[in-house]
Amino acid sequence: MANDDRVGSRDVEPKGFLAKTLMKLYVPSVLSGMKKTMEYMIRPKATLQYPEVKRVTRKGYRGEHRLKQDEQGRMKCVACFMCQTACPAECIEITAGPSPWPDRDKAPVQFRIDMMKCIYCGMCEEACPCDAIELTETYTQVSTSREEKIYDINRLLSN
């Protein structure tokens, strides 16, 4: 057997005929490897049985967006575009218009987030001066078309 084909523990030079033979036959390496795999076999698994068991998200988990509403059910957003400005993925697209309520000037007419562009960084939440947008803990997002992944204002409000 060529020299470079040898494997096994090289740290200690084995002494004695038996030890050398066992080393040459990979016996120590094989045994240490099998010990390691046995450890893995009996170790508890991290896998969750997904549809039945759902991972409990930690506080501050960043999932789908929601547009918040105040006590009277009016959306808090005033269409200041701060989230759109802060968004590094440029996935937010707001169309502003006059507000239907007397206590503010401006409100979004349309508020679109392209969930496929979004990187869930939470910068929109950080940037919002009105605490009007937040990332919920919803991470199960299934759509059957690209159009569905562009969430409009109603989808975001009902999230």
């Binding site: 057997m1 084909d5 094989v30 490897g33 099998m34 795999t37």
Partner: peptide
């Protein structure tokens, strides 16, 4: 099975060497 998921595969020359020479 335990051995199967522990040890890597031998090369063909190693296999033959092991069989005939060892």
């Amino acid at each position: 099975v335990w051995i199967r998921w522990t040890l890597p595969r031998f090369k063909y020359n190693q296999l033959m060497d092991l069989g005939w020479k060892a």
